[in-house]
Simulated scan of single mutants.
Amino acid sequence: MPALTDKQKRFVAEYLVDLNATQAAIRAGYSAKTAEQQASRLLRNVQVRAAVEQGQQKTAAKLEVTKERIVEELAKIGFSNMLDYMRAGHDGDPYLDFSELTRDQAAALSEVTVEDFKDGRGEDARDVRRVKFKLHDKKGALVDLAKMLGFMVEKHEVTGKDGGPIQTETRTWREVLRQEKKG
């Protein structure tokens, strides 16, 4: 297998930063005009693709990110329950109780907002504390979990114009270069 060129290596390094292939191509020194096409071509290159995958695996190993850890985090969100955070008072009104919150329960929280304010005026004014919280997207986490575990498979059907077959065209590099010079 031929080694990557310096420019290809730079593309791989830049692509691993933000997974934006067009911008990675530009940062790697490819022309901004043709960066999108170059990026597409580079990502189809077997050696470049292998280098990207190797880089992603190296990053995942360094961060100790595994499929199992991802599934665990999604499960914390997907199976979170509002009753883990609220209790009912003697009057039946709910109140928040974070006193025994576990690390797993905290992982499902996306936002906690605390507002202190005065309600009313003068002697009738009273101090009020309003606490609101949001959980991460439960449905989104469950869908992602189902996909990761193979319970749900997405299928995309691709057709050509008016539902017909996809038209393909085979051209040599010379023909492509000639057409680019004309256009």
Rank of each mutant, 00 (worst) to 15 (best):
A13Q: 03
A25K: 02
A51T: 05
N20I: 06
N20W: 03
T34W: 08
V46H: 07
Q23W: 13
T22G: 09
S31Q: 10
R44N: 15
F11M: 07
Y15W: 08
S40A: 15
A32P: 11
A21Q: 03
R44Y: 08
G29P: 03
Y15F: 13
A51M: 03
R41K: 14
I26L: 00
E53C: 12
K58N: 15
E14T: 00
Q54N: 14
Q54P: 05
Q38V: 15
L43C: 10
E53T: 11
G55L: 01
T59M: 14
Q38C: 12
I26V: 15
V46P: 10
Q56P: 07
T59W: 15
V52H: 05
R44D: 12
E14A: 03
A61I: 04
Y15N: 02
Y15M: 00
K33D: 12
L43I: 12
L19Y: 13
V52L: 08
A60M: 10
E14G: 04
A61Q: 11
R49M: 14
A32S: 12
A28M: 04
L19G: 07
G55C: 06
N20G: 04
T34V: 10
G29R: 05
G29L: 09
V12T: 05
V17M: 09
A25G: 04
A60D: 09
Q56S: 12
A28V: 01
Q57E: 11
A25I: 01
A60Q: 10
V52D: 03
D18I: 03
G55K: 08
L19N: 08
T34E: 09
L19M: 14
T59H: 14
R44I: 04
L43K: 13
Q38F: 11
Q37E: 13
Q57H: 15
V52I: 13
Y30H: 02
A50E: 14
G55Q: 07
V48G: 03
L42E: 03
A24N: 05
A13S: 09
A28L: 06
A60G: 06
A32N: 11
V12E: 00
E36H: 14
Y30M: 02
L16H: 01
A28N: 05
A39L: 00
G29A: 02
A50C: 07
A39S: 12
V48A: 00
V12C: 01
Q37I: 13
V12L: 00
T34S: 08
E53F: 13
K58W: 10
A32I: 06
A32W: 10
A24I: 02
L42Y: 03
V12N: 01
L43A: 04
L19C: 12
Y15E: 02
V17F: 07
L42K: 01
A39Q: 03
A35K: 06
G29K: 08
L42V: 02
Q23E: 13
A61F: 07
Q38E: 15
Q56I: 13
A60C: 11
V48L: 00
Y15Q: 01
A39K: 05
S31T: 06
Q37P: 04
A61E: 13
Q57L: 15
T22V: 06
T34F: 07
Q38Y: 15
A24V: 04
V17E: 09
Y30G: 00
Q57F: 10
T22P: 06
T34R: 03
Y30S: 05
A25Y: 05
A21E: 00
E36Q: 14
Q54T: 08
E14F: 00
A61P: 04
A61N: 12
T34C: 01
A35H: 08
